[in-house]
Amino acid sequence: MTTKDRSGHFLNNKQTSDLMPHRKKNICIHIVFLAMMGILMGPSVCAEQVVDALGRTVGGESTPQRIVSLVPAMTEILFALEVEDQIVGVTSYCNYPDPAKFKPKIGEYANPNLEILATLNPDLVVMAADASSPELLSRLEGLGISVYIVYPRSVSDTAGLIRSLGRLLEKQPKAEALAATLDETAECVRNLTSDRPRVSVLCTVMSKPLVVAGGNTLLDDMVGIAGGDNVVPEGINRYPTWGIESVLAADPEVILVSPHPGQVDPSAFYRQWPELKAVKNNRLVTIDADWIQRPGPRLVAGLKALAKALHGVSPELVDGRCLN
């Protein structure tokens, strides 16, 4: 099923592209033809089609020129891809890099202000599968706006995502460089820690209530790469709420406490429990939450910090091995 609205955006699902594999080429030829006829105004560059996290096909027309990011990590990727001038709106949580703070704000990622969003006249909205509702997606589609949905839960997902966005935005070389750095850092950290005994780790997301990162999360993957074992088993909830007794029962060697700015630091809470190995051995580790919880280019810094915290591998050693 293909819908073509008045502004000429295509939104079609994966089935369509399977049924019509030459579709992209056809459109391109069509557009180039129209451009040659001098009928079509505006950019005639043809971006690649990419498949998003829900299997929807996005792009294939002109390169997006007016992008709204509803995900702080995606804002970071967009800035790293040097498409700053094409970003017309971000969320109030998009605080990195600094210029992102001065972009127009469309509210919070779960419920952006649709009116502001529509006024910005975007031709691409990037949103997260787990933070935004299907209703929001259908509203945006109803407004004729292309939506690219992301759902990265690992370092390799993140690298793949950077490459996809690079194709979508005609920034392949830059994207390839970013993604390769991330992949290589992960590989390097994995190699440097693989022959060391695994360290059991608990990743705290917030302390009131005590929310921890379980399996199938970015944190779980990061810890695994850096030679750690997440003590939270895979369960119904990716981010379950735990009682302190569960922490005492699991008794991890390292507890990761990474408060966001303004959050209560969970260290004080854990220090009430000297029975915990991690407290006794002074292994409550604080790493900037945005380095390890935001699936973007700064995961490189996060991986190095984790390797140092879990196994004492210095960041210089990682750099020396990877960037030879």
């Binding site: 939270v232 088993p233 369960g235 119904i236 379950p240 709420t241 009682g243 569960s246």
Partner: peptide, 9 residues
């Protein structure tokens, strides 16, 4: 509530 989905509550 502590037991059913332990270690989650």
């Amino acid at each position: 509530s502590r037991q059913l989905y332990a270690p989650a509550e």
